[in-house]
């Protein structure tokens, strides 16, 4: 087990480095100075600015400083547009918000999706099953950026039940719509995966044995079928996490929740390279870390995995 974790770590670290170096090269190769504006800046001022941000140094010095800043001080560098803020400030501001609704979305997607899929499989070919399949097909064509306007239209404009945006320190009314918009398509995928694998497990030999010796259905499902049926769901958690991180950009933009995605898009539109790079690297690191955790979890639960 420890060798397995060690090996996976050995892969994760180079991936992270590739990501950092890759984004850095992209930024370095970007045409024009980040401080150049349409009005034109005098060359002397430009040179001063670049010296202040260390952009006049050779490439390897810049990249070394950047990586070392992250590793030693967890410092993602300055913003090139806002003088009084650096990337860490923006992260500190936006990350708790993203984490709050991201966490709830994840919980909802896994719990509701998993339950739905398993119930659908147990009640195979009944109205419950058809309902679950219907929901998961419907949710497939409603990605978060499509669902969000629909939700606001129904619950804010027509019914007037929930606010259509804002955050207000994370009061529950403000969290509900973002969570639904973000979690629905992943909930549907999880339901579909859980249903398919539960159906397969329920027809396998060891379940037949359990039935033959007269165990009640509840006990069969909870004690014998659940664990193997949930394995494929676990392997889907990695991609789901990536999808939610990406989706949070839409949520932040549409609901103005003030999460990290809002800063990312704003910096993309402003060409604020420092912020873009910082957020990409941070979210990339998170993704890689989460995939690592899922892999280890999977290897721990599934006895068939050799390591």
């Amino acid at each position: 087990m420890f060798t397995f974790i060690f090996k996976r770590l050995l892969i994760a670290i180079p991936v992270l480095l590739i990501l950092i170096v890759g984004t850095f090269i992209l930024m370095y190769a970007a045409p024009g100075s980040p401080f150049a504006t349409e009005r034109g800046v005098p060359p002397a001022v430009l040179a001063n600015l670049e010296r202040q941000y260390g952009l006049d140094q050779p490439f390897y010095v810049q990249i070394w400083r950047y990586i070392w800043g992250i590793v030693s001080d967890f410092d993602f560098g300055p913003s090139f547009i806002y003088r009084d803020q650096d990337v860490n400030d923006l992260i500190a501001q936006g990350f708790p918000v993203t984490l709050t609704y991201g966490f709830w979305s994840f919980v909802v997607a896994v719990l509701v999706g998993g339950t739905l899929g398993i119930i659908a499989a147990i009640r195979h070919n009944t109205w419950l099953d058809y309902l679950a399949v219907g929901i998961s097909i419907g949710a497939q064509v409603l990605p978060n950026f499509v669902l969000a306007p629909i939700l606001v239209l129904i619950f804010t404009l027509w019914l007037g039940w929930l606010p259509g945006g804002g955050w207000q320190g994370g009061q529950w009314q403000y969290v509900i719509l973002p969570v639904i918009a973000l979690s629905t398509s992943f909930m549907a995928s999880i339901a579909r995966i859980a249903r398919a694998s539960m159906l397969e497990v329920l027809t396998s030999n060891f379940i037949r044995t359990a039935r033959a010796k007269g165990l009640p259905m509840r006990r069969i499902v909870l004690r014998h079928a659940l664990k193997p049926a949930l394995l494929p769901v676990i392997s889907y958690l990695g991609p789901a996490f990536v999808g939610m991180i990406t989706g949070s950009v839409v949520i932040d933009i549409y609901f103005s929740t003030g999460g990290i995605g809002q800063f990312f898009v704003a910096s993309a539109l402003n060409r604020d390279y420092g912020v873009m790079m910082g957020i990409t690297v941070l979210l990339g690191a998170l993704t890689i870390f989460f995939n690592l955790v899922v892999d280890i979890l999977y290897a721990w639960i599934d006895p068939k995995i050799r390591y």
Binding site: L19, G22, T23, V242, V249, A268, M276, I279, T280, G284
Partner: peptide, 9 residues
Amino acid sequence: IPYMFVLIL
């Protein structure tokens, strides 16, 4: 790698 961010980049 979170490709969407790289793509936007």
